[in-house]
């Protein structure tokens, strides 16, 4: 893989992962740094400009590695946590909140997986009921697998902790590493899908829908638990028909009755992030549309309950209600 540069925190320079990654990044210039904050999210940086040629930053995550998941984030009941071994994403989805969160588009990969694992064990031991750990909140968990070795490390880790569940959120087709493993019962691969027209329009650099469905099919046939996150729903003329086509296509490839869960969730952004996105992309159609604000979150005026209910009805003609939830 090629990056415009690879920055390495001196503290992790000798870490095994860093040594491995250095051999994979070709002739990308390597720059030693003290802390990733020296190059990431500096005042005056521009996300859109950096997105043209992002760099990779190899760093150590300090402080809390595992955090409580937002209410209604996932399907599972009980305690939910998320952890972010990476900040930012290979893809460039126009609706993504990461653009509003960071001024920098460089990828930060925290290589001290051992500390994330200790954090996971610590939270799991604090709770008697099953605990779900979500990965892919601040990044795409699979997209950088050849570099990050995230699955290679965390899937075996969770395989030996059946009382905890790992949900990997992704839009990637990088499933080779997963297919090298025997399916792990407490590991869920959750793919985010939007209709093809929306994906073509808003999800830049994301693999084609057909390729993602093929990757999911391989995983399902290999016994992996698959979840589909039909998110974000972006209201626009013809969206009902677009979802008719999407559901038909998805459930002609995947066995609906074997899915772990499915969900629907509207396009929503914290108002402050929306404001930042408008500054970055004032020329973007999605961000020019009328919005409604509720509890500090903005959503499209054209969307709302009626649309979601309609899509929900369609979706529930394919899947059992027991495996459905609406993303909060």
């Amino acid at each position: 893989m090629k990056f415009s540069a690879v920055y390495i925190e001196r503290e992790v320079a000798e870490h095994d992962s860093v040594q491995r990654i250095i051999t994979q990044v070709g002739d990308s210039p390597i720059v030693m740094i003290e802390r990733y904050g020296e190059v990431f999210n500096r005042a005056g940086q521009n996300f859109r400009l950096q997105k043209r040629a992002p760099a990779l930053i190899l760093a150590k995550k300090h402080g809390k590695t595992v955090l409580p998941a937002p209410e209604g984030y996932g399907f599972e009941r009980g305690r939910g946590f998320y952890f972010s071994h990476m900040l930012n994403c290979l893809y460039d989805c126009r609706y993504c909140f990461l653009q509003g969160m960071y001024r920098s588009a460089h990828y930060v990969l925290f290589v001290n997986f051992e500390d994330f694992m200790a954090g996971i064990d610590s939270e799991a031991s604090n709770h008697k009921e099953n605990t779900v750990f979500y990965s892919g909140y601040d990044c795409d968990s699979l997209a950088m697998e050849p570099v990050s070795a995230f699955c290679k490390s965390f899937v075996p880790f969770f395989a030996s902790r059946p009382e905890s569940v790992l949900e990997i959120r992704t839009k990637s087709t990088q499933v080779r590493q997963l297919l090298n493993f025997k399916a792990v019962d407490n590991c869920v691969i959750a793919m985010s899908l939007t209709p093809e027209s929306a994906s073509n329009r808003w999800e830049h650099k994301v693999p084609a829908l057909s390729k993602r469905l093929q990757a999911l099919k391989k995983l399902q046939l290999a016994g992996w638990k698959i979840a589909i996150r039909f998110e974000p729903v972006i209201a626009e003329p013809g969206v009902d028909g677009d979802y008719d086509k999407l559901f038909k296509r998805v459930f002609s490839v995947l066995a609906a009755n074997e899915l772990h869960s499915v969900s629907l969730g509207e396009f929503r952004l914290p108002a402050q992030f929306h404001k930042t996105l408008v500054k970055l992309y004032p020329d973007d159609n999605l961000l020019a549309r009328e919005t409604v604000r509720q509890d500090g979150m903005l959503s499209l005026l054209e969307g709302g309950e009626v649309l979601l209910k309609s899509l929900e009805d369609k979706l529930l003609s394919y899947v059992d209600r027991s495996c459905y939830y609406r993303c909060a």
């Binding site: 415009s4 920055y7 740094i33 190059v39 400009l49 760099a55």
Partner: peptide, 8 residues
């Protein structure tokens, strides 16, 4: 002190 120009 050091600074890091963006690799553009």
């Amino acid at each position: 002190r050091s600074a890091f120009p963006t690799p553009v």
